[in-house]
Design a binder for these strands. Sequence first.
DNA 1: TCCAGGTAACTGGTCCAACCAGTTGACCTC
DNA 2: GAGGTCAACTGGTTGGACCAGTTACCTGGA
Lengths: 236, 236
Amino acid sequence: MDITPVTRSAVSDVVFGQLVAEILSGRLTPGDALPGERELAERFEVNRHAVREALKRVQQAGLVRISQGGKTRVLDWRGHAGLDTLSQLAAAGALTPLEILRDISEMRRSVAADAARLCAERASDDQIGIVLAAAQAYPIDSSAIADTFAPDLDFWTAVIEGSGNIAYRLGLNTLVAGFTEIGWQTVVDLGLGEEYVDRDAHQHLARLIADRDADGAQRLAADLLGRTVARIAAHL
Amino acid sequence: MDITPVTRSAVSDVVFGQLVAEILSGRLTPGDALPGERELAERFEVNRHAVREALKRVQQAGLVRISQGGKTRVLDWRGHAGLDTLSQLAAAGALTPLEILRDISEMRRSVAADAARLCAERASDDQIGIVLAAAQAYPIDSSAIADTFAPDLDFWTAVIEGSGNIAYRLGLNTLVAGFTEIGWQTVVDLGLGEEYVDRDAHQHLARLIADRDADGAQRLAADLLGRTVARIAAHL
DNA sequence: TCCAGGTAACTGGTCCAACCAGTTGACCTC
DNA sequence: GAGGTCAACTGGTTGGACCAGTTACCTGGA
């Protein structure tokens, strides 16, 4: 049997999720006015406070504009939502998992390639050491693809830390969150795991970075991650 | 005189801002337990609901882990916060505005360059038309640099829309938000406006995209935005 | 007829107070 | 000392009241 920890989600989380889904799915279009908090509370059969907590978060996500006295109106999420909304897009079904997967991998490609370049240019010796160690920790056997996700993430985290770019660091977190939302299983099912088992390529990349070969590191990183992009594109 | 609309910020927003600042500034370190909601409410001199609304948002930002029955603990924001937290970093003073500006412009460079390539490869004719129009709308005179931000944003938004990558689209929103948080004035003061007045380069880029010259578009975009990166780096 | 002004009925914002539901640790028993 | 028990925390949820803006309608005077 496959026992999973019980997840009891808070009421406001459920309300939040439903509101976000309504907006991202297009059932609520920009400019639409949401029902009042009191009515929402009645319809969701929860207390108004829970609705308020949820609405505040929807606002923070950039999906609605709340104004005291006036009605809460839906915003155009393409123009107002932040990258963190990416992981909600899959859940809301606004895009297919494959589309989101492609976009994530494309962004990962350009960001990680640039991070590899920057890492080679300006990482401290300590940071380079971590990159080399992460490359060493890369698994050798290709049998259990799912188990290579963690080492792979460690490796790229080290590279991005070495780049010293905090936007890349935070962006990585967001992309991973979106990736997780889709589920690793989908990735495995699509046979997209090849990149994760190319231990030689990652070790080579680490060596290029350690040698301060910025151009070479960027090229190799772009090539390495580009394979995944191409493989996903083939499925679309 | 310079009249500014009165901004009345909600109580929970203030609490949210203070909590985020405490964490991002490092005054609260990962693993630390926050005071209980009741105590926070007492110290902020607000109702507990306001504290709860704020805490829920801090959790959504990935800065704390809330668990019923247990205490709310601070997370390592470098490893858990999403890109949307970027704009808070400036306000919290965790990094200098110049550092954040550099990181934003670096990310913009690699994302926009890739978007230019993708746009040339797969944008629809309608989308290409919008890019060309946005390039046409680029201002000619270089006197009022601040007025060129909007057309510049329109241009790159068109390019990214043409790329069809939703992650890039949302990422742009987040980067612009971070940029706005720092303030355009800082940018102008640093003399970083040159890129925004290079009308010829943007028109050239639009033409390359329209001609479906993916490599050329990527190169020019990277070069164009790379100038700003270099100019900021010179200040560090 | 038209429009300025007021007003009533909304909207979201804040607060108080109570109770439910998990977690933790001290304490008591065996 | 090992184990179980329970009280005292923690966050989660609810109800209701009231404050504070916005909106639309309605009225009375020009």
